[in-house]
Design a protein around this nucleic acid. Structure first.
Lengths: 191, 191, 191, 191
DNA sequence: GATGAATGAGAATTCATTCAT
DNA sequence: AATGAATGAATTCTCATTCAT
C-alpha cells in the first residue's frame, strides 16, 4: 500500500532534485534567476518536467519555502534541546545558505502575493520557536533585554553579516561578529 | 574604471524623471521589475527614450545607485555636523525608502557584476563617513564598543526593521526599535 | 472508413462522464477549450484517463459528435411520430445546448479533417430525416415552399436565434422568433 | 506635420499586413489558429513584430474586428444609397469571407471578454444601419413583416448559407438561396 | 482499468538592444 | 533630443501524446 500520491509526490526524487536546484539557483544567482529553464538546466532536467511537478512558478517557490521552513523548525527544536540554546540559535542564524535563501525569499515577497501568504503562515511559528529558545536560554536572567527584542537583534545582525559577506564586504565583519558573540555570551553568563 | 556612459546631460529633467521612476519601481515592485519598459511606463515616457539616456540597463541601475550614494554621503555629512550625530545616523538608517532601495541593490548585486563594482566603489566612502559619525558621537566614551562594530549593528538592525515592516511583520517590531534606540542613547549618555 | 478506436466499453459510466464533460466545456468555453486536460478537470478525472478512453483528441471529439448525432436522430424520429411534426422539428431546432454544441462543431470542422469526415457521414441522414418530417408536416400543402428550402430556413433561423441569445444580443430576438413561428403555423394551417 | 502616431500607426503597411494575415488565418483555419506565430508566418513577419504592433492577442483581434466593422458600416451606407437597397443588403450578407469572419468572431466571443465588449460596441450601429436599409427598401409596403424581424431572417439565413457552403454541404443550398431571394423580391415588388 | 512520469511543441508575453530617422 | 521599427532571447504556461507499471 503505497503512500497516497499527488502530482509530484513528496517522495519523488525528481521532485527533490528540482527543489534543491531551485535553492541553489536562488542563492547563487538571485531569486530573479529562478526560472523554470534555469532550474531545469541546473537539475539536468527538461523544463517541462519542472512544470509537471510544479504547475506554476508560485507552486515551485512555495514548495521550496516550505521545505526550508520545515528545516528551520527542526533546527530550532534542536536548539531548544541544546545545552547552550543561545549559541545554537546564533549558529542556526549564521547558517549562510539558509539565511541567504531566506533573504531571497524576503526580497521576492514584495511582488509575489502567494509567496507572501505562505511566508506569513510560517512566520508565526518560527517566531514562537525563536522566543522559546531565547527564554529557555535567558531563564531568570531576562532582566536586561526582552526576548522579542533579542530575537530581532539576532535575526537582524545575523542577516546583515550573511548579506555583507555575500557581497564581499568584510570591513569590520569579523570584529562585529566576535563582539556580538561576546555580548551574547555575556547575557547568559550574567550571574 | 571606465566612466559611466552618459548621453543625456546630468542636468536634464528627463534624466531625473527616469531615475526617480526607476527608484519607485524598484522599491514598490522589487528590482526584478526594474526593466526599461516598466520604468518608461512609470515615468510616462517611451522605452526608447530610457535607452537614449541610459544605453544599457546596467548604466541605468548604476546611475540610480550613484544618485542614491551621493544622497547618502550628503546625509552622513549632515549627521557629522549634527549636535547629536548618533541620533542623526540612526534616523538616516531608518529612512525607509532609501534603505529599502539599498536592500534591492544588495539583492540585485548577486547577479550584476557591473553594479557590484559600482557599489564597491562607494561602499568604502560610505563606511568611512559612518565611522567618522560614530567616532564623533562616542568621543572618548568609545570604551564599550568599537566604532566599526557599532556601524555594523546599526546598519544590520536598521535594515532588519525596515525589511520586516516592508513585509508587514510587526511582531516585537516597535519594542525592538525602542529598546535599541534606548541602548544607543545609553552609549552617548555614559559619563 | 475505419471504426473509431475505442478502448473503454460504450457502456462505461466513466466514458459517459468524459463525453458529458466535453460537451459542457465546448458549450461553455468554446471548442478551443476542449482539451483533454480541461475535460479531465471538469469531469474530476486524471488527464491520462481521458486518453485511456480516447487515445487522440479527434477520437474524443468524434465520439461526442456521434453521441449528439444519435440523440438528434432519435429526436427527429420522435418528431416524425408527433401529431404536429413541424412544431416538434422547430422545438428540436431551438434546443439551445444541442444547437450551441452543433455550432461549435461547425466552427471546429474548419481545421479538423477527421471531424469533418465524421460530420459528413451523419449530415446526410439527419437531412433526410428532417425532410421526412417536413414532408409529413406539409402533406399536400407543399405548394408554397419546397421541403429542402424549408429545412434550410428552419435550421438557419434557429441557429441564428440560438447564437444571438448566446451572445446576449436580444434586439428583435423575441419578435423574430414569434413572427417565424407564426409563419410556420401558417404553412400547415393553409387549407 | 505627420499624422499623430501611436504604436503601430493606422497608416503603417506592416500593421495592415498583420491585420490581413489574421483575417485569412481566421477564415481558413478557424479562430483558434489565430496565434501570433501563425499570423506572423502567414504575413511573412517575425512573431515579435506582431507583438510590437499588437501587444496582446486581444488587441490584435479587436483591431481586426474593428476594421471589419468599419468596412461593414461602409457597405451598409452604400446599400442605403443603392436603388435596390434590399438586394444590396442581401449581397452584403452573402459576402462569404466577411460573413465567415464574423462567424469566427461570434464563436470566439464566448471566451474573449474584451472582444465581446468591442463587438457589443459596434453591434448597435450595424443593427441600426441594417434597419434603415430595410425600412428604406420596404417603404410603405412594410405590412407583412416588421423590419427587425426581416433583419434577423436575412442575417440568419445568410449565415446559414455561408456556413454550410464552408462545410461543403450543398444539399438544397442553391434552391434555398434562390427561393429566399425570390421571396425577398416579392416583398418589395408587392404593389 | 487506471495512472504517474516524461517530453516536445506551441502559445502569449516581456525584454534589452540596435538602428535609422 | 527623441522616437518608431524591428528582432532574438527568455519566460511562463498549456497541451497532446507516449510509455511503463
Amino acid at each position: 500500500m503505497a503512500a497516497p500520491r499527488r502530482v509530484g509526490a513528496e517522495s519523488s526524487s525528481t521532485r527533490t532534485q528540482i527543489l534543491e536546484a531551485t535553492e541553489q539557483v536562488m542563492v547563487e544567482e538571485g531569486y530573479a534567476a529562478a526560472s523554470t529553464r534555469r532550474v531545469a538546466a541546473r537539475a539536468g532536467l527538461k523544463p517541462s518536467l519542472v512544470h509537471y511537478y510544479f504547475p506554476t512558478t508560485d507552486d515551485l517557490l512555495i514548495a521550496v519555502y516550505r521545505r526550508s521552513a520545515e528545516w528551520a523548525s527542526g533546527e530550532l527544536a534542536k536548539a531548544l534541546a541544546d545545552p547552550q540554546p543561545l549559541k545554537a540559535l546564533w549558529s542556526y542564524t549564521m547558517h549562510t545558505t539558509r539565511t541567504a535563501l531566506m533573504l531571497e525569499f524576503m526580497a521576492m515577497a514584495t511582488h509575489r502575493k502567494a509567496l507572501q501568504a505562505a511566508m506569513a503562515e510560517h512566520a508565526g511559528e518560527t517566531h514562537r520557536l525563536q522566543l522559546e529558545v531565547i527564554e529557555q536560554a535567558l531563564g531568570d536572567r531576562a532582566r536586561d533585554i526582552p526576548a522579542d527584542v533579542l530575537a530581532t537583534l539576532i535575526a537582524g545582525i545575523g542577516r546583515a553579516l550573511v548579506m555583507e559577506s555575500g557581497l564581499g564586504i568584510s570591513t569590520g565583519h569579523i570584529r562585529a561578529r566576535e563582539w556580538f558573540e561576546g555580548w551574547l555570551d555575556g547575557l547568559t553568563a550574567k550571574s
